[in-house]
């Protein structure tokens, strides 16, 4: 396990290096001269050259890349062109909100998916199972932004239960934060429910066919005890890893979700960076989102290995 962990982390560092290369390369092909963008069309050649020198844009590309990576390692992501503030600070302000959204979405999904999955497994091939599986297909087949709009239409516009979008900081009004959180988190949670439910169902089915469950039944234990106490406890293990994967999926989807609900997190910041061709900000957003996405996927992988002794890592430990 230890060797495996070291190997995985080594891989991750290598992957991360590739990630920085891809991010840097892609954002540098972006059309448009940054200095010209900042100074506007009336800028003189001298002032453009001076600014290029100041931003380090006159250096060869690989030097710019190395400078950028060295900066990243020290937590320096450069300065946003649009906001004229450090990128790290801008991201720091918004990141927590996106993590809150992704966490709430995952929590809502687990809350609905576990009971649905258990019922579907216990009533396999009966009406509740078919209902759950239909629900599952609908959940994964509708894009997040559409769920968001449907939720806004029904719960905000028609029923008037929640605000249509926006954000209130918890320091000002914690209840307001919650009411603004409910719709976006539920819209994302709905999509995630499907995956977690399907995993719960198949995991429960596997466990329910095991010998010790038959034994428990033979001993006269009630269905309730067998299912909830014995089966679910063992079936939950693969589900936990799926939950970790789903969190990263939720976090990856915030770009779209935040746009629908005007939730001012890192997703909308990314879109702002794109619209204003703010390359340092865009680079920072991409790196941070990719890093969190990678870390939660890695966590899922490790949990999977930790819980499932059948998996042998690397073969040499």
């Amino acid at each position: 396990m230890y060797n495996y962990l070291v190997r995985r982390l080594g891989f991750m560092l290598l992957t991360l290096l590739f990630v920085t290369v891809i991010t840097f390369a892609v954002t540098n092909i972006l059309p448009g001269d940054v200095a010209l963008l900042i100074l506007g069309p009336n800028a003189t050649d001298q002032s453009i050259q001076a600014l290029q020198a100041q931003l380090g844009l006159d250096k060869p590309l690989y030097v710019q890349y190395i400078d950028w990576v060295l900066g990243l390692l020290q937590g320096d992501m450069g300065t946003s062109l649009r906001f004229d503030e450090p990128v790290a600070q801008l991201i720091g302000e918004k990141l927590g909100r996106s993590l809150l959204l992704a966490t709430a979405a995952t929590a809502i999904a687990v809350f609905f998916a576990l009971p649905l999955g258990v019922v579907a497994a216990v009533k396999q091939n009966e009406l509740p199972d078919l209902f759950a599986s239909m629900f599952g297909f609908i959940g994964i087949s509708i894009p997040i932004f559409l769920w968001g709009l449907v939720f806004i239409l029904v719960f905000a516009v028609w029923l008037g239960l929640f605000p249509t979008g926006g954000y209130v900081p918890p320091s000002e009004d914690p209840i307001g934060t919650l009411t603004h959180l409910v719709l976006p988190a539920s819209a994302m949670g709905f999509a995630l429910t499907a995956y977690i439910m399907r995993m719960t169902r198949s995991s429960m089915l596997e466990v329910l066919s095991e010998e010790y469950i038959k034994l428990a039944r033979a001993k006269g234990m009630t269905q309730r005890v067998v299912v909830l106490k014995h089966a679910l406890q063992n079936a939950i293990i693969p589900v936990i890893t799926v939950v970790a994967f789903q969190f990263s999926y939720a976090f990856g989807g915030v770009v779209v979700l935040e746009e629908v609900f005007f939730w001012p997190g890192i997703g909308r910041l990314t879109l702002t960076a794109i619209q204003s061709r703010d390359i340092p900000l865009l680079q920072g957003c991409i790196i941070v989102v990719a890093l969190i996405y990678m870390l939660s996927n890695l966590t899922a992988d490790l949990l999977y290995g930790y819980f499932d002794p059948r998996i042998r890592y690397g073969g040499d430990d």
Binding site: L16, F18, T23, T27, I29, L30, Y249, F251, G252, T270
Partner: peptide
């Protein structure tokens, strides 16, 4: 495979979005 891992380290929609900008 490490190159593939790197491409998969971006959330799909974010990678597609960035490529579309370019």
């Amino acid at each position: 495979m490490r190159l593939m891992d790197a491409a998969m380290s971006f959330p799909p929609i974010l990678l597609a979005l960035t490529l579309m900008v370019v």
